[in-house]
Design a protein around this nucleic acid. Structure first.
Lengths: 190, 190
DNA sequence: ACAGGAACGCTAGCGGTGCTAGGATTGCTG
DNA sequence: CAGCAATCCTAGCACCGCTAGCGTTCCTGT
C-alpha cells in the first residue's frame, strides 16, 4: 500500500514538473521553443515519459492553460474586491485582465488562442474559467438589465480580448492603449 | 527586350499561382495543410522555386493576407454604402466584418492572428488595411467626438475581432452571436 | 529468501516539417 | 555556333511530434 502511494505521489510530482517546465519555457521563450525534446531534457527524463502523462504536446499546453484560468480568475476577483465603486470596478477589472495577458502572453495564448479543443468540456477548466467569467459578469451587472447580462458580459470580454490580441500582434499602437481601454470601460459602465 | 519581358511576366504569373494555391489550400484545409511540399506540387514546380519568390512560408502567408485586406476593405465599403442610416450602417458594417471572418477563417487568421511581423511597415498593406480602417472610422464617426475617433474606432474593431476569435475557438456559443453583436453595435452607435 | 512478472523508462527510429547547397540542364547572347 | 548565364531539380540538413520494442528495475506471492 505504502509503496504504491509513494509511486503515485512521485508520478504526480513529475507530472507537475512537466507542466511547470512547459510554463516556464513558454514564458521565457514562447511556445515555439517548447519542444518535447527540450521539455524532456528539462525534467531530466526521456521524451516518451511525457507521453505516459499526457496524450501529446497539446495536452501539456492545455494543462498550462488550466493553471492560467485559475490565476486569471484570482486576479479579477481581487481587482473587483478592492474597487471603491461599481464604475471603478469595471476599469480596475479591465486593467487587471489586460495586465494578466501582457505579463503572461504565452499563457494567455494557451488559454485563448492556441490549444483549441482540449478541456473545454471537462471538469477542471469550467470551474476556474467560470469563476473568471462570473467575476466579469458581476462587474458589469450594475450597468445592465438582468436578461442581457450574459450577452453583455461576453461582449465586454470580447472587447478586452480583442484589445489584447490586436495590440500584441502589432496591429494597434501600444501608446494609445490607455485611451482605448478607457473607451471600452466607458461603453460598458453607464 | 521582348524575351526578358516575357520571362518577367511568366515569373509574375507563377508568383500569383503560388499565392492562389496557398489561399485555396488554406481555405479548404487550413494552414496546417499548407506545406511547402504540397504547395510546390500544386504549382507543379519543385520546392526551392518557392524560395526564389518568397523569403519563406511566412512571406507566402503574408501575401495571402494582403489580398485579404483588400477584400475586407471592399466588403466594408459596400456594407456602409448601402446602409439607409448611420445607426444601421454600424450594424451592417459589423455584420459584414464578422461574415468575412467566418467565411474565410484561414485568411482572417493570416491577416490578424498569424504571420505577425511581416508587411506592416511596407507599402502594400497599409493601403488596403487603412482603407478598411478608414471605413470603420467613418461608420462610427456620427456617434463620437472627433478627437476620440481613432481610439473609438480601434476599440470597436477590437470588439469585432474579439467576438470573431473567441467564437471561432469555441469560447463563445455560436447560438448567441447575434445578441452579442447587437450589444456591441448598440454600445457604439449612440 | 527467492523466482516470476509487471511496471517502467530508455534507445532508436518513423514520417513529416521548413529550408538550402550544388550541380545539371536549359535557353539566350554575341 | 560557342559560351555563358539564368533556371530549376535532386538530395540532404536539422529539427519536429510521436511510437515501437527492448532492458532493467523493483515489487509481489510463495
Amino acid at each position: 500500500m505504502s509503496t504504491q502511494a509513494r509511486r503515485q505521489r512521485e508520478r504526480a510530482e513529475r507530472e507537475q514538473a512537466i507542466v511547470a517546465a512547459a510554463r516556464d519555457l513558454a514564458l521565457a521563450e514562447g511556445w515555439d521553443a517548447v519542444t518535447t525534446r527540450r521539455l524532456a531534457a528539462e525534467i531530466e527524463y526521456s521524451q516518451p515519459v511525457l507521453y505516459s502523462h499526457f496524450k501529446g504536446k497539446d495536452a501539456i499546453m492545455a494543462a498550462v492553460a488550466v493553471e492560467g484560468f485559475a490565476e486569471l480568475a484570482t486576479a479579477l476577483v481581487s481587482a473587483r474586491a478592492s474597487a471603491p465603486d461599481p464604475r471603478q470596478a469595471v476599469a480596475d477589472v479591465a486593467t487587471a485582465y489586460v495586465a494578466f495577458a501582457q505579463q503572461r502572453p504565452a499563457i494567455y495564448d494557451a488559454m485563448f488562442t492556441l490549444a483549441v479543443d482540449l478541456p473545454f468540456a471537462s471538469q477542471d477548466v469550467p470551474t476556474d474559467l467560470a469563476r473568471g467569467f462570473a467575476e466579469l459578469a458581476e462587474t458589469v451587472r450594475p450597468f445592465v438589465d438582468n436578461d442581457d447580462l450574459e450577452a453583455v458580459t461576453e461582449t465586454f470580454w470580447s472587447g478586452l480580448h480583442g484589445l489584447v490580441t490586436l495590440m500584441r500582434s502589432g496591429r494597434l499602437r501600444r501608446a494609445d492603449h490607455d485611451r482605448r481601454l478607457a473607451v471600452l470601460v466607458d461603453r460598458f459602465s453607464r
